[in-house]
Design a protein around this nucleic acid. Sequence first.
RNA 1: GGGAGAGUGGCGGAAGGGUAGACGCGAUGGUCUCAAACACCAUUGGAGCAAUCCGUGUGGGUUCAAGUCCCAUCUCUCCUACCA
Length: 796
Amino acid sequence: MEHKIIEKKWQDYWYNNNLFKASDDSEKPKFYSLVEFPYPSGAGMHIGHVRAYSGLEVVSRKKRMEGYNVLFPIGFDAFGLPTENYAIKTKIHPREITDKNINVFTKQLKSCGFSFDFDRVIDTTDENYYKWTQYIFLKLYNAGLAYRSHTYVNFCPSCKCVLSNEESQGGICDRCGSNVIQKEKDVWFLKITEYAQKLLDGTEGLESNPRVKTEQINWIGRSEGAHIDFKLKEANDALRVFTTRADTIYGVTFMVIAPEHPILEKYEHLIKNLDEVNKYKEEATHKSEFERVELQKNKTGVKLIGLTAINPISSKEIPIYISDYVMMGYGTGAIMAVPAHDSRDYEFAKKFGCEIIPVISGSDTLPYTDIEKGNMINSPLIDGLSVKEAIPTMISKISELKVGERTVNYKMKDWAFNRQRYWGEPIPIIYCDKCGIVPVPYEDLPVKLPFIKDFEPNENGESPLSKVESFVNCTCPKCGGKARRETDTMPQWGGSSWYFLRFTDPKNDKEFASYEKMQKWLPVDWYSGGMEHVTRHLIYSRFWNEFLYDMNLVPVQEPYKKRGLCGLILGSDGSKMSKSKGNVIDPLDIVDQYGADVLRLYILFISDYEMATPWNNESIKGCARFLDKVEALDSMVDKNSHEYSKSLKVLINQTIKGVSSDIDNSKFNTAISKLMILVNAYSEKESVTLLDYEVLLKLLNPYCPHMAEELWHRYHDDSIQFEPYPTYNENDLIEDTCLMVISINGKVRDKVEISRGLSDDEVKEIVLSRDRVKSYIESGYKKIIIIKDKIVNIVV
RNA sequence: GGGAGAGUGGCGGAAGGGUAGACGCGAUGGUCUCAAACACCAUUGGAGCAAUCCGUGUGGGUUCAAGUCCCAUCUCUCCUACCA
């Protein structure tokens, strides 16, 4: 069949007639299937996109046939670095590049025949969209969940730009490849930590692969323990630590604080070796991520002279060190060091000659970190207790004395939310000399991104927007005086944190989405995407949704009911596809050569949907042959027969059942193999009935809709897209006879066709009378096990 | 260091404790062709003429029966990382 002609024909038909439009007022049950919307890069659609969309595409087409009102939307997450970098290089404006890329992408999506509702396309860089991204930011700000703080961040000294953790992976700047350092800057944070427990609880009900849950749980990183205050000898103040091991408090022989710890500045005047301390601090902040990891085992630090802590339980005086093995970002940025029972503290103590006091019996070799075995020693208040008893006992003691309390700590950190970039949503904040930080009033949104030509950040690492005076200068909404705008923009993750809400009502200019429409469509029934977004986008978007839910602006607490995973397609050499390796497969080449139907079929047949799998240019031929076979069946169809062929009835029923449940479980590969088996069975016959053939086409339609539609129209006038999905008859799933496998001592020796449902005695009689069996049990047998209609095992 | 997942033919991969290798690719032989490509038919885990034996990373175990369950161990991939 000429795929180029028929694919074009049916795509025009579907898209021109808006066949996949989701209806806001249909009586049918709703189904919201969502794929992670793409970043419209200049390189166009990648083979990975095809796999990602083909999965839910099949689900969505099937759901429509099953009578659901399906919302299967697509959009573009178009703000971001690659476009901005491309703009810097080519001097073409990001707006122009984005529009062009979105156009190309849309064409490519349509050339695959994906059944997205193209009436609901959203573009995060459209001011009618980012207006609401800014609106939600203001909501967060007004709720106290967006705050500004002066702190250390990743900074690229060459680009003079602050980077997020994502943009500085491995301590290397994404843009120029220089080593990233830590620099003190003003940073906007979103207080995602306030939602840590809710996010943790919310993972409970999510339908998904266990990996998705575990990774989120680990990322949130809840740990139970206590805050303990260690008084300072030289000042009326205390150093607060977080610990999960309150039991070891008698073993504390020193304290360690992070180089960025505020106590250093606060008590500068008391520190006698300030020069040495500051020098260490300077070095630590300039260490790249790479160096910190490299030097992991080699602990460094400086003892503070002039500051001493006092153990609140033993009253012992203990020294304080500064070292970069303690992180400001976790717990309180200070620890009580117990070298006898913590390997990091032990290494440090060995190097710096600190005292080591064991407080748990059980081993002669230190550090001893097993909490299961051993009892407390050298610990007057808790001697003799096990570790597990000692922890709560000591925590109660500490709260009694009011020097600390039970607490829960989360590994997750607040979300650094500003970037010194042009191509992002402007943060809607104004700075007034009189009034301080003033949020832009809701009615003044959007704060539009001005159209400029120079996208480079300035010398001080300030956003390109800081150079645009017409943007920066403004009046204070509170006092009407002169004021300045925030010139930083939001990160990549902003617009994508709520896009699934917008799809329910994409053109609304009064609200980000109407409550009624969200009520109709939410939650997302099936959200499909890659593992790489599980600890970022998935957490971020759940956070925004939960926040909006608490504000009564969204009807569901958790936005996603089910999260499906899609694995990577690797190059045929088994490594990640990349231009430099030259192993990139362009999906459009495949569409051109074999057609969209073959590509869609093969990308799902290639392996289990969740697994990473290498592409294979040879194997795809099998799928092309399969479709040829389907078409060849057309000439065998007996148009006058509207019942199943007798000999195919059971197989057809089994196939309907199997294919359907495979799709529901994202086992697209085995569903396709079942269709192949069915087609092979058809091909062996002289002719098939019209009904046989129609069922096949319907089952095939979600995968290869162009072909199914074309062949369907040879017998019908209407589209196949909304034909009822085939159902099976429970009574027609099994044959009257079954193949009984006979094994002797667990090894298959014989097989016999018998009628189904025979009693054990009847089976025994048949089996034992067989010559082949007799030859094995001449001298009798010990035992015979019969599994009805399946297998017999004789133990000799 | 911590967590998760995975090891099955030449390759991609199938197998609710019950015929290991479904389905597809590739390969071999054949038909068609002057020839090739396509297509079609047959074979295809290994050894053996055969009966049969051996086979799911490795070593144990449970069971009438183990790729599947249990214990130990090795390797690979991903995530995370001095997490106190």
